[in-house]
């Protein structure tokens, strides 16, 4: 998964027979969510062609870090499917076990400029992970239904 300098973490795809998974590491919870959000955006469309012209505020709540991550990504999917909003990157101001707040930066889909990649149906709860290890590194994992 490519980086464009905006993420402070690293994200890569996980194999799955029918669907696709994402894993990421980052130095903080905020950076991890930004990294997963950017990775998710890269599954939906070629992010290099998405200009960060608009900001879309996002605030989600959840019961624990994992639930917060899933709901953030679900919000991103919802904006794509209902508003045709493509994300270039995310800026996450704060993540707690109960909520996350920040913005998605991107623009509306234009068929002439944006190549759609995967059509993601949903963010699953299968084997999701969002946690800090003993060394202070944050690890994330999520599977998407295709």
């Amino acid at each position: 998964m490519g980086r464009d300098g905006s993420e402070r973490g690293r994200c890569w795809k996980l194999p799955h027979t029918a669907d696709v998974g994402l894993a990421a590491v980052a130095p903080s919870a905020e950076a991890l969510l930004e990294t997963l959000s950017a990775g998710f955006a890269g599954l939906l469309a070629d992010r290099r062609a998405v200009r960060p012209r608009e900001e879309w505020p996002v605030r989600v709540t959840g019961a624990g870090f994992v639930s917060v991550m899933e709901r953030w990504l679900d919000e991103q999917l919802f904006l794509w499917e209902t508003r045709r909003f493509l994300t270039r990157r995310a800026r996450v101001d704060r993540v707690t076990p109960g909520a996350a707040q920040g913005v998605l930066l991107g623009e509306r889909y234009e068929a002439s400029r944006h190549a759609q990649l995967l059509a993601v149906k949903a963010v699953t709860k299968h084997a999701s992970r969002f946690e800090e290890d003993r060394d202070g590194t944050w690890h994330g994992r999520v599977y998407l239904d295709i």
């Binding site: 027979t17 029918a18 299968h126």
Partner: peptide
């Protein structure tokens, strides 16, 4: 059948 999420497909 194959690997799904939760239930197998």
């Amino acid at each position: 059948f194959h690997w799904g999420y939760g239930f197998p497909i």
